[in-house]
């Protein structure tokens, strides 16, 4: 997995783009995400069902992994079983 890779959820509509790649399994709704088209849609794990929001960046506590949500869904993201958090945006003034 490298920056720019697109990952899809196998349990909901969520799609992410990898901004920073790290170690560990990235999951959505409790199920590992896949490159390419998922075969069958599985069940969302209720422990990972808070949803994803388009345009938000998601990071782990060590900021070793960063994902950009490019399509929203009902599952929530995790790395090695630990939930990812929305990264705070530091807004810059619009320059163009």
């Amino acid at each position: 997995m490298k920056p720019g890779t697109r990952l899809k959820s196998v349990v909901c509509d969520t799609e992410v783009m990898v901004i920073r790649a790290g170690d560990g399994t990235i999951a959505c709704g409790g199920a590992p995400m896949v490159e390419g088209k998922p075969a069958d849609r599985g069940q969302i794990d209720p422990a990972f069902a808070e949803g994803t929001r388009i345009g938000k960046r998601y990071v782990d506590s060590e900021a070793s992994v960063e994902l950009l949500c490019v399509k929203a869904g009902q599952g929530s993201l995790s790395l090695g079983g630990a939930a990812l958090q929305v990264k705070d945006a530091k807004p810059l003034p619009s320059s163009d």
């Binding site: 720019g4 901004i19 388009i54 345009g55 938000k56 950009l68 945006a89 807004p91 810059l92 619009s94 320059s95």
Partner: peptide, 23 residues
Amino acid sequence: HSNLMSYILGTVEFAAAAPEEAA
């Protein structure tokens, strides 16, 4: 693509504009 995407992702927050905003 990598240059332009890095610029946009590094400087702009997605959908940050209020509905009335127009450039």
